[in-house]
Amino acid sequence: MDALKSAGRALIRSPSLAKQSWGGGGRHRKLPENWTDTRETLLEGMLFSLKYLGMTLVEQPKGEELSAAAIKRIVATAKASGKKLQKVTLKVSPRGIILTDNLTNQLIENVSIYRISYCTADKMHDKVFAYIAQSQHNQSLECHAFLCTKRKMAQAVTLTVAQAFKVAFEFWQVSKEEKEKRDKASQEGGDVLGARQDCTPPLKSLVATGNLLDLEETAKAPLSTVSANTTNMDEVPRPQALSGSSVVWELDDGLDEAFSRLAQSRTNPQVLDTGLTAQDMHYAQCLSPVDWDKPDSSGTEQDDLFSF
């Protein structure tokens, strides 16, 4: 819950932080000083300027060897085509990944977070970031790969997607708890209302004896509580940590079903599988986004697919 609360507080303090972009060759504004600060901008989305290598189908939802083989196929196909790589912007948030063309600003792909089953910074092609997700059109699994400016960037994108998945799962947990509370309150309110109706004398007997209905007592009954809980029953509950912020979080049926399955089948359902080692994760978390744009010590960066 700490990640969720800190993310909400950060967004309320400075929503404009989320509009910064990394990996864009110096076009961005001043960047936060450390990885923790940038992680807090996830709610509205972190932007990464990358190059799209392509996509291939895979048979399993996750796995280092599986993704490595898929990336190898994608890279080989991209090299064989001889075409310049498409420059894209990857927007990562707890909602998922939005992929747009840098030149036309046209939407290429919009992947809900619950469809993503794996992401990684490839070991062999260490400047490549990739994720595996279920197609929104059918049940097939797709591996999408992107060329980053350097290994640090690939690791940073991988960690960002993993963190977005974690925050999304926490949102789901909060929403589920809130819905259970509202359902319980609604049920209790309905029981109270039913009890009051059972003990209320029939209207005919009131008229016969000349008694008047006590409207004041009726007004004191917990009807307002019942209506408050039943009027918006169809509205999706939102985490309290975000009250007053500009973010509107809505959970669709697909996300609810997917996270429910994860909660039942996995020990740590909030953790998205990645190909990063503990050492890689520690190294990337210690980086400032400013470091992502620094040239690798191995030599001059080449803006070309064939540089790796």
Score class of each variant (00 low, 15 high):
K5G: 13
R9I: 15
A10P: 09
I12D: 08
I12T: 10
L17P: 12
K19N: 13
S21D: 12
G24F: 08
G26Y: 09
L31T: 15
P32M: 12
D37V: 12
M46Q: 11
Y52R: 04
L53G: 11
L53A: 09
T56N: 04
T56A: 12
V58M: 13
E59I: 11
E59M: 11
G63S: 15
I71G: 10
I71S: 10
K72H: 11
A76I: 06
T77N: 13
T77D: 02
T77P: 12
T77G: 06
R95M: 11
L99T: 01
T104G: 12
N105T: 01
I108E: 09
I108R: 11
S112V: 06
Y114R: 00
Y118L: 02
A121E: 10
F129H: 13
A130R: 08
A133C: 10
A133N: 05
Q134W: 15
Q136V: 13
N138Y: 14
Q139L: 14
C143Q: 14
C143K: 00
H144V: 14
H144N: 15
A145R: 06
F146Y: 13
L147R: 15
C148P: 00
T149M: 07
R151G: 08
R151H: 06
K152V: 13
M153G: 06
M153P: 01
A154K: 07
A154L: 07
Q155H: 15
T158S: 05
L159K: 12
A164D: 00
K166N: 13
K166T: 05
K166L: 03
E170T: 06
E177S: 12
E177M: 10
E178T: 04
D183G: 11
K184F: 05
A185C: 05
G189K: 00
G189W: 04
V192I: 09
L193V: 05
D198I: 07
T200W: 03
T200Q: 07
K204L: 06
S205A: 09
L206G: 09
V207T: 02
V207F: 04
L213A: 00
D214N: 08
T218S: 07
A219S: 02
K220E: 01
A221M: 06
A221C: 00
A228L: 02
N229Q: 05
N232P: 06
D234P: 02
V236P: 00
P237R: 10
P237H: 08
P239N: 00
P239K: 02
S245F: 11
S246A: 09
S246Q: 07
W249G: 07
E250C: 03
G254F: 09
E257R: 04
A258W: 06
F259Q: 07
S260F: 02
S260D: 06
Q264E: 10
L272M: 05
G275N: 06
G275M: 03
T277M: 02
H282F: 00
A284H: 00
Q285I: 01
C286N: 05
P289G: 08
P289Q: 04
P289F: 05
W292G: 01
D293V: 06
K294E: 05
P295H: 08
D296G: 00
S298D: 02
L305T: 03
S307E: 08
